[in-house]
Computed example of a mutant assay.
Amino acid sequence: MTDDDREPRQVELVDDPGPRSWRKAFDDLGRGWKQRALWGYLGWQDIKQRYRRSVLGPLWISISMAVIAVAMGILYGALFGEDLATFLPYVATGLLIWNFVQGSIIEGSEVFIANEGLIRFLPAPLSLHVYRLVWRQTLFFLHNLIVWLVLVIIFPQPIGWTLLLAIPAFALLMINGAWIAIVSGILATRFRDIPPIIASLTQLLFFMTPIVWQYDRLLSMPAVAERARIAEINPVLHFVEIMRQPMLGQPIAWHHWVVVGVITVVGCLTALVALRNYRSRVAYWV
């Protein structure tokens, strides 16, 4: 027996926090953000592939939005007796915001299922697919923003410095779109009934959200004002209002911002818990 054999061997301890770890959850988000060149490119390619061999290409996004906004604005404006000069921009702005919310909710529930091949064979953080989804929805939003700009030029609105509030409002939309995609995406990989349920509920939310009807108009009617406040149970209403009010120069109702702030904090914490506990299982569930 040599002297080396007599010496006690030191066992090297590996700092492995295990599959359920806050550090790994935050590391996933951080590594995903560092790969923004990749998900930024993939998000843009998603749009190009959708309109491949099309003459107008991504301009169809704005055209589709314009046709729907004008058609619904004229139809519901006539039904409700609204002034088109104010109602058309109102409907178009609501649809602009709603399309982002709807895309984040519906596509978010399938964000990991749709990327099954990449998740199984590409060692990348889960958050990369979420960032890619939010970026793609942001590109759709920017394309549709052209419709809002044209309508505001044709029908001038009392827009002032409060328009700047639309920037933090959209940032809140992006953050909430990300946590919704994480939570619903993880749930959907385990329970495949989640995406169709979410799609059905989203259709219902459209009619409960003041897109083609004016919430403030109902509040101004004494006969239905109290019952109209029931609409504030719908969380999407608050997200729409924090963006639409500054974009149309309407008075800012700060209680919508408070509600959105609370939802954002609770949602982000929920997403972190889901990412901590189940991120390692997604590859087996998809």
Rank of each mutant, 00 (worst) to 15 (best):
L29K: 01
H255T: 08
D5I: 13
I180Y: 11
A199E: 02
W179K: 07
L151C: 11
R23H: 06
T162I: 12
L237C: 06
R217D: 10
M72I: 06
S127R: 02
L269W: 09
L126E: 02
F191E: 09
L96M: 02
A228T: 05
P123D: 01
A225K: 05
P251T: 08
V273G: 05
Q250F: 06
E241S: 13
R281A: 15
F191I: 15
C268F: 14
D28T: 03
P89Y: 02
R53M: 07
L205N: 12
Q203H: 07
R52W: 05
V111M: 08
L13D: 06
L187M: 15
L118W: 01
W98S: 06
R20N: 04
V14M: 13
Q102C: 09
L201W: 00
H129T: 02
G40L: 02
D5F: 09
A25P: 14
L139E: 05
K34H: 13
A231E: 03
S64D: 06
P123N: 13
A274G: 14
G267T: 04
A271M: 11
R52C: 09
Y41G: 12
K48V: 11
T138I: 04
G261V: 05
W161H: 11
R36L: 10
L75D: 03
I154L: 11
L269P: 04
C268P: 03
Y284S: 04
I119D: 02
D27P: 08
A231M: 13
F155M: 03
G57W: 02
G73W: 06
L84A: 15
P246A: 04
D28F: 00
T270G: 14
D5M: 15
I198G: 04
H129L: 12
A78V: 15
G267D: 03
Q157H: 01
I175Q: 06
P123H: 06
Q245V: 03
A271D: 05
V258K: 02
